[in-house]
Nucleic acid binder design. Sequence first.
DNA 1: CGTTCAGTTGACCATGATCAAGAGTGGTGG
DNA 2: CCACCACTCTTGATCATGGTCAACTGAACG
Lengths: 263, 263
Amino acid sequence: MPNALTRRLSEYTDLTDDDLARLAMLSAQPTRKVGARRDLIRQGDRPRSIYLILEGWGCHYRSLADGRRQIVDFAIPGDLCDLNVYILDRMDHSIAAVTDLKVAEIDREALLDLATNSPNITTALWCQELACKSINREWILNVGQRRARERIAHLFCEMFLRLETVGLTSGYSCDLPLTQNDIADATGLTPVHVNRTIKELREMELVMIRSRRLTILDMAGLQDIAQFSPDYLHLKRNARHSDAMRGGSTIAPPDDPGVAIAV
Amino acid sequence: MPNALTRRLSEYTDLTDDDLARLAMLSAQPTRKVGARRDLIRQGDRPRSIYLILEGWGCHYRSLADGRRQIVDFAIPGDLCDLNVYILDRMDHSIAAVTDLKVAEIDREALLDLATNSPNITTALWCQELACKSINREWILNVGQRRARERIAHLFCEMFLRLETVGLTSGYSCDLPLTQNDIADATGLTPVHVNRTIKELREMELVMIRSRRLTILDMAGLQDIAQFSPDYLHLKRNARHSDAMRGGSTIAPPDDPGVAIAV
DNA sequence: CGTTCAGTTGACCATGATCAAGAGTGGTGG
DNA sequence: CCACCACTCTTGATCATGGTCAACTGAACG
């Protein structure tokens, strides 16, 4: 089974066997484990290497002096955290582990080597970087213009699709290891209001959340509410997602047995 | 007098005479003029070249089907609009002219040539790209966590400092060719509320806005309200900005004669 | 079992939205 | 030169989305 990074990058270009081998080596870099809720790196720190998420969820966040915190993106398996972090002197934001996290630490040389020897991968990495920027823009739109119900619906749509891209969904279900507090920090709402809003989505029979797992009961309805359109994710091959994303059927498959899908 | 791009990039690295010559050639690429309020390129369009803003203000925005619009960044002289736009198939957002705009259209070859022949410039361009992403993150924080007064104060601080970087301020004044509607779209507020909030900032004697020009009367106070810290802009040389940014004095210089500063 | 943390619910409040009308301001053409 | 038009700014009145405070439930874990 291909790993998450491979699946992710092959959204952007065709990878040769040679490319695949190089990517496999990347994931085999020294790994680091970080416990849930701990910071991987903190605003102001001097970055040493680039992180590749192998297992678990992380989040990028920025906070204000008085404690207000904004999650600006989530990081899931296959995501590279700030590709070019080695150009910067200081981190301008923090990265935390949402769940227990396994990351590969890729040093500058390994990445440069990759860039010089595989133009395909370089292109794919650029695409990933651009797609990430596009996600940032969508989040500004989300928080700036959408209202509570739309915001949360949008977040669910986005994360489901991103997880699907790396093979971490089954049917209409995926892991969602976020507390309502996390969702609040990501959407600019309060935990209390997130709670009420999710309740609404539940009562509208759009989603079901149980033991840290999200099941989308009505994909078309959820996307509709969110005014979600997957273009901004730049998944060139999203034809592959047609069944789930077209949302033609509102019938969810029976709750899967919850088997964790290996990265 | 150095042009805006040069000033901008020399924030990030030291440029040799050779670099400067190359950059001068960039600005001499075929230019295009776009009238105020017109779109430069629209979401869904196939990008042809990269735009370098020579004169005027632009904005990047995304909108929803029902007309809600979110400005996700402003573009001022010296800004390159989506450096790597040529990798993408379709624009995921639109770029519009806020004022009459003069842009250089840089084609792929010219940029590649630059990248291969001047490592300094390449590094600087990367830094610009990263700084832009950092600005995106800050905007998510701004819209997600700050309240109206803080948001607008933050926007003023940011734009003033960005303009200062490219030499487009005089004393504590700078052009601010935005309508209150634009500010509303950038901050996720309504025009009416923007109006009331600016009135507050005026009554607090923090800023003065007259005929599309912003004067910051109390830099320290404004930054304080906004919880603004310039780190996220990644201006390595912001020692240079010490006088304006430290905000030691609350006395603004007399309103300058409003001479437009050439790019 | 008790402790802790996430989720849930209620009551009340405030920030900012909405609706509406009027005041400046600048540009254009008669 | 003035009249008109369009656009932006301004202000008031009212409303609603979402915030705040607080208490309680339920599950997980030692």
